[in-house]
Amino acid sequence: MKSLLQVVATGAAVALFVLPAAASEVRLTGSGASFPAPIYTTWFKQFTRANKGIQVNYQAKGSGAGIRDFMNHTVDFAASDAAMKDEEIAKVAEGVQLLPMTAGEIVLAYNLDGVKGLNLPRSVYPGIFLGKIKKWNDPAIVAANPGVTLPDEEITVVTRADSSGTTFVFTKHLCAISPDFESGPGTGKTVNWPSEAKMVKAPKNDGVTATIKQTPGAIGYIEYGFARMSKLEMASLENKEGHFVAPGLEGGQAALANAVIPENMIVWLPDPAGVDSYPMATYTWMMFYKKYDSPEKAEALRKMVIYCLDEGQKIADKAGYIPLPANVVEKVRAASANIQ
């Protein structure tokens, strides 16, 4: 709204008062990880409704693209499942504040007609993604699933086509449990997958989800909420203690239970201990500058973080994510004051 000119006439004298303009809308733009996109989208819509004058636009384009946007200063904040590296942070003159905002599980979703409750040992699923186990009725899979009829069908492996934090966390886990994977593809937001595997690539978590659903005999790695929402079957994975654990809140919370958040807010859980722990759980981060040109924008971002902590965590489980432990919430709350 434009400033208004108020004219007050008193006798022969005329006094002019310029009324200040109404506060302009603060627009916040972010990009990055598709892993937490469903819950972030819900949070930002609810936050916008609760805070008139603030608009949040988030584009899920993959963790690697989000980090690039953040380093190029084309967004106000970014999101990634692979926390920024020290050398990347050093290139941001304004400083970087990473905040873990939610946590989730990476699941192995599959498309096998009539097969439910599939168990995959930790000696088996790295072999699938290395292209060493090629058929669903491989003896190693059959042995872990007594009473289950597995088809003589070739396995189609579905991976990410883009630079992905989900890929980073997944490959970090595979490297932790498989020396062959560590000495082969290794860890990264993108890796050179073995040519031995029958492989299809798709962009973002929703692209991998759709490809698995459309491809009989497929298996791929996606965030738990995507699999649950799409009604895909998910394998129970053998954890560090030798127990098969299905994806879900209890296994995810058990995996996070012993993780200590350090000062830089970056912690990894490549192979969590505990008999009840699901083996692939991870925090996912939002990234902010420590110094903004606009105090109004910095204040709006701080408000957004606090809203996600106080209100957003209440819907985490329903959305397919793991609510942050109380001690982590308080650490994030304190660190958000660094956004200035």
Rank of each mutant, 00 (worst) to 15 (best):
K303W: 00
V142R: 05
Q55P: 11
M1K: 15
A334S: 04
T284R: 02
A109F: 01
N51Y: 01
M71A: 05
A93S: 11
A210M: 09
T209S: 14
Q340F: 02
L256F: 07
K85H: 07
T29L: 05
Y110Q: 10
K331E: 02
D276I: 07
K116V: 13
K204E: 04
T209W: 13
N264C: 02
R228H: 07
K172I: 10
F168K: 11
G53P: 13
P323W: 00
K201F: 01
D86N: 13
C175Y: 04
P179K: 06
P272W: 02
A298D: 03
S80I: 09
T48P: 10
A9H: 14
D206W: 06
P126W: 13
I306G: 00
V200M: 12
G114N: 10
E154D: 07
L174Y: 02
A259L: 08
L237H: 10
D81S: 09
F181D: 05
F181P: 13
G53F: 00
Q59L: 14
A60N: 11
T102K: 00
Y307L: 03
T166L: 04
F226H: 04
D69G: 05
Q313P: 06
G252L: 06
R160L: 09
I128Q: 08
V148E: 04
N57S: 09
N239G: 03
E154I: 09
A298E: 03
I306Q: 01
G225P: 08
A9Y: 13
A37T: 13
K52F: 03
Q253N: 08
A281H: 01
P270C: 08
A78H: 10
A15G: 12
L112V: 13
T159D: 12
F170Q: 08
T102L: 00
K61P: 08
D310E: 10
D206N: 15
Y58A: 08
D276N: 11
K134R: 15
L309D: 00
K91P: 15
A227T: 03
T167L: 03
L5Y: 07
V332Q: 01
F77P: 08
T284E: 04
V191E: 02
L112F: 11
V208D: 00
G165Y: 02
A15K: 14
Y40K: 14
Y40I: 11
V329Y: 00
R228E: 10
N338H: 07
E296Y: 02
K291W: 05
I315V: 11
K45H: 11
I89W: 01
S164F: 00
T171I: 10
V158E: 01
V305W: 00
L249G: 09
I266F: 06
V329E: 05
D317R: 09
A319R: 13
G114K: 15
Q59R: 15
D180N: 04
E233G: 03
E154R: 13
